[in-house]
Structure formats: C-alpha cells, structure tokens
Amino acid sequence: MTMSVAQQIIMIAMVVLGTMLTRFLPFVLFPAGKPTPDYIRYLGKVLPSAVLGLLIIYCFKDVSFLSGSHGIPELIGVAVVALLHFWKKKMLLSMAGGTIAYMLLVQLVF
C-alpha cells in the first residue's frame, strides 16, 4: 500500500462525502418548511416506480448476455421470483424460491 493512513482517510472521506451529497441534496434543496415546487412533487410521485425498475436492471449490469451462460440463470431466477410472488404473494417465499433456484442453476447446471 503506497498511501499513508492520512491519505487513506481522506480518500474514504471523499467517498462518504460523495455518497452523502447524493442522499442529502434533495432534502437541502427542498426543505420541509417551504412548499415544494409542483414539478418536484410530481417527480416524487412518479419517480419511485421508475427507480424500482432501474434497480432491477442495475442488478443485471454485470451479466453478460452474449457470452458464458447468456444471463439464462438470472432470467430464470427472476421468473421464479415473479411467478411465486404473483401466485402466493409471500415475500420471503418468493425470494427464497428464486434465490435457491438461481444457486442450483449456477452451481450445478451452468
């Protein structure tokens, strides 16, 4: 390790600062005491569904569809989770089922 401890602390502090900027900025810009602009309130309503979609895709960011297992275990895993959830609506069951299916696929099949 070429950095001194002080330099390492500064580097970690920068990551903390960057992370906190992205979390605190909306609350600093639109404080609770003042009326929030209509456009921002609108975004607050429609963004969550879109962001949850973004999060799912985010989980696929390191999956290679053109090589290796072509993302097949991931897609099957997601399908198992979705089917179980539409069927039984039990959060833990859907997650456990999908995860176990995925683990079996990557360990034994692919």
């Binding site: 949850l52 799912i56 991931e74 997601v78 989770v81 979705a82 999908g98 995860t99 683990m103 990557v106």
Partner: peptide, 16 residues
C-alpha cells in the same frame, strides 16, 4: 455461489 441473487430477488418482489 449465487447467494447474492437474494438482492435481485428482493428488488423484483418490491417492484411487483
């Protein structure tokens, strides 16, 4: 191996 899929599963459930 593959246990990390539990986070993907969580987001899928929450999306649904």
């Amino acid at each position: 191996e593959g246990l990390e899929f539990v986070m993907t599963a969580l987001f899928v459930v929450i999306f649904i």
